[in-house]
């Protein structure tokens, strides 16, 4: 069986993704293959754009989904969105990989994801992940195209700022202030929605 043969989930809304993770927590391999088919190729793109080479990105995307398998029982759809959860796993593996400057082919089972387990107090006012996702989507929709773009691109390393500058055809020096502006607008939109 190859990765290409696996059908991605027919619906990729948050709810069906959360259901797949719940099934993975019950050791459902088909659900795992479906999650893999949807997420691994996107995580791979994320890693490549973060400066990881192609084969390293492939390995790390595999590793990300392996962590999903191991930690699926800890996933709480009420407090976290499925994609946000997987994004943080991929991000943490990327931190780990980039700072150890692992070379492709040297990956083993020694990832120490516990080193990323930050603790967070419950939010100010009790809203669940679905509500906050809704608010966030609404707030993002109110940003203009450039603002939404710089926010998305800011999830990559600083060196990607040159890329942002090229894409948006603005001087490099204004990228940081553009990111800052977009962020504070997003934040005030979210605060208003409370």
């Amino acid at each position: 069986m190859s990765a290409m043969a696996v059908e991605p989930p027919s619906a990729t809304d948050a709810e069906s993704l959360s259901r797949l993770i719940a099934a993975v927590a019950r050791q459902d391999r088909d659900a795992f293959a479906a999650l893999f088919g949807y997420f691994a190729p996107r995580v791979k793109t994320f890693l490549i754009r973060s400066g990881v080479n192609e084969s390293g990105a492939d390995e790390l995307a595999q590793e990300t989904l392996l962590v999903v398998w191991r930690k699926a029982a800890q996933f709480d759809p009420v407090t976290t969105g499925a994609t946000a959860w997987i994004f943080t796993i991929a991000r943490n593996l990327r931190i780990d990989a980039l700072r150890r400057e692992r070379r492709a082919g040297t990956l083993d089972a020694s990832f120490d994801l516990e080193a990323f387990a930050d603790e967070r107090p419950p939010p100010d006012n009790a809203i669940d992940a679905a509500q906050s996702q809704e608010r966030l989507s609404a707030a993002l929709a109110q940003l203009n195209e450039d603002q939404a773009r710089v926010i998305e691109l800011s999830f990559f390393e600083d060196k990607a700022h040159g890329e942002i500058a090229r894409l948006l055809q603005i001087p490099l020096g204004t990228v940081k202030s553009r990111v800052r502006l977009a962020m504070s607008r997003l934040r005030s939109l979210l605060d208003e929605a409370r």
Binding site: S2, A40, A84
Partner: peptide
Amino acid sequence: VSALEQVGACMLERLPPTAMSMDALD
């Protein structure tokens, strides 16, 4: 930060997929 991670999730979902190696899932 949780909100920003959701933004990261939106970014991840909008990325074009890159084909995984043939034996990756196996």
